[in-house]
């Protein structure tokens, strides 16, 4: 991947506490436009909390989030979705009662705006809008190779495919930054390879900036341009995969040190 150095997102001195529990302590890092940024760390290190801060589900007590060169005011998740941040979840959060295509269509929700009146008639602008967004969704479905399950209710799909549908739904938002929370959790080697391929394809073809949390180190080191390591809510290391791998603090955190 070519060197890209314009910062699209920066978190500065984030502090997040739940009562007496300190989830994130004074963490700062940035994300370059177009890169794949990995966030790693042992369980409970605050990785998912960090993503929740970025997409507005948690409001940190202290710290700033800078996005597109501007300081972001405190916003609700649905407002942040509008700014172009999409995510997938650690435990799949698909809409179980809907089919694959309907799930992907939900990603276009924010781009549709025809009012109740047209929706009721489902005529003219409303149906044109529906068709136009359907086309984009079909492209994404094609891209992620889930055509054959287009009309299957997602609840009955195998785990690996559900993860892929969730990625499709996030992509349908045409996000500037895509947050992936453990996209490969619970997958076998083959599924992991597929998923890695899709993540690289998304990054290269759509130019989407990706921030991902992952526990499989081989995958992280192969995919990521740069890696942030968290431990107990603190920033342990930040750098290229090679730098992080040779960092003594990281090795200690993962392997443990004799006391």
């Amino acid at each position: 991947m070519s060197e890209k150095n314009s910062v699209i997102m920066e978190v500065k001195n984030i502090n997040l506490r739940f009562g007496g529990v300190i989830a994130i302590q004074d963490v700062s890092f940035n994300i370059f436009e177009g890169e794949i940024r990995a966030i790693i760390g042992p369980n409970g290190a605050g990785k998912s909390s960090m993503l929740n801060v970025i997409n507005g589900f948690y409001h940190p007590q202290e710290g700033e989030v800078w996005f597109n060169g501007e300081k972001r005011p405190s916003m609700e998740p649905y407002q942040i979705a509008k700014t172009g941040i999409a995510r997938t979840f650690q435990n799949i959060a698909l809409f179980k009662g809907m089919t694959t295509i309907e799930n992907v269509m939900t990603g276009r929700q924010l781009k549709m705006n025809k009012n109740f009146f047209w929706q009721m008639l489902r005529y003219g602008p409303a149906i044109d809008e529906e068709v136009q967004h359907r086309r984009r969704c079909e492209e994404i479905i094609d891209f992620l190779e889930i055509n054959h399950i287009r009309k299957t209710p997602v609840g009955s799909l195998p785990y690996g495919l559900q993860k892929r549908v969730e990625l499709a739904r996030a992509l349908a938002m045409d996000p500037k930054i895509l947050l992936l929370d453990e996209p490969m959790a619970g997958m076998n080697v083959e599924e992991k390879q597929d998923m890695s391929r899709f993540i690289i394809d998304v990054n290269e073809e759509f130019g989407t900036t990706i921030a991902l949390i992952e526990h499989d180190m081989a995958v992280v080191m192969d995919l990521a341009d740069r890696v942030v390591v968290l431990d107990y809510g603190k920033l342990l290391a930040d750098g290229t995969p090679a730098e992080v791998q040779s960092n003594q603090a990281v090795i200690d955190a993962y392997l443990g040190v004799p006391h």
Partner: peptide
């Protein structure tokens, strides 16, 4: 249509619905 989908999103998984932009 769009509005019906937003209802079903809230029904099936309200947190995900909110993060996708449904108020």
């Amino acid at each position: 249509g769009r509005i019906g989908r937003s209802w079903m999103m809230i029904r099936d998984m309200d947190i995900a619905a909110e993060l996708i932009g449904v108020r």
